[in-house]
Computed example of a mutant assay.
Amino acid sequence: MTSKVAPPISVAIQWAVHADHPPFSEVDNSRIRRWAKACFMDRAEITIRLVGEEEGRQLNRDFRGKDYATNVLTFPMDMPDLGADSGLPVYLADIVICPAVVEREAAEQQKDPIDHLAHLVVHGCLHAQGYVHESDSQAELMENREIEILKRFKISNPYISSSKK
């Protein structure tokens, strides 16, 4: 019997903003990496950058034409598939998350802020793999995948309203 070897997945974390206060002071890079790695079944190399509202707003304005800081932005790079022997990642992306927006949304939606952060890491990683939510059927596919991944971390369905933990 052969054992399945996990594909190489590299997750770099950049903190452009200090999260030295609760709730995100409890989240270390290894935890973010575990959330991200759970999303990929093929080789991947991603960077997750946690930014302040000013940088988040600038990126959202420059790349989406929307003048506000958003919770998560994903910048996937199209890579030619040169085959498994090439050693190149199948997925290569930068994911930008704004903790201030995540914290505000969690409070508004009565969600645990760390669970909400995990959800947005997963959401960004799925976008890096081509998942979108432009139509109802696409959204359902993406949401079901998010729910499945988050369940591994004992995080409840983010699409069901719940009270703060």
Rank of each mutant, 00 (worst) to 15 (best):
E103W: 13
V90S: 01
Y131I: 07
I147T: 09
I95G: 01
V101E: 03
S86K: 09
M142E: 07
V90P: 00
V96L: 06
G83M: 01
F153Y: 14
S86C: 02
Q129R: 12
C125A: 08
L141I: 02
N157E: 03
M142Y: 02
V102C: 01
Q138E: 11
E146S: 08
V102F: 02
E134C: 10
S135E: 14
D136F: 15
G87Y: 15
A93Q: 05
L73W: 14
I147H: 11
L141G: 02
L82T: 04
P99V: 03
Q109P: 01
T74G: 11
A139N: 07
A93G: 00
E146M: 13
E134A: 12
R145Y: 10
N71I: 06
K154H: 12
A128L: 08
A107I: 07
E143Q: 06
V132S: 13
V121S: 09
K151D: 15
P113T: 03
F75V: 05
V101W: 08
L141W: 00
P80I: 08
P158K: 00
A84I: 02
A139S: 13
P158I: 02
N144P: 15
D115A: 11
A84T: 12
L92R: 02
P158R: 03
R104M: 10
S135C: 15
V132P: 00
N144S: 07
I155C: 02
M79T: 10
L73D: 07
K151C: 13
I147W: 14
K154G: 13
I97H: 02
H123A: 02
A84W: 03
E148Y: 11
N71L: 03
H116Y: 08
R152F: 13
L141P: 01
G83E: 01
E105G: 04
V102P: 01
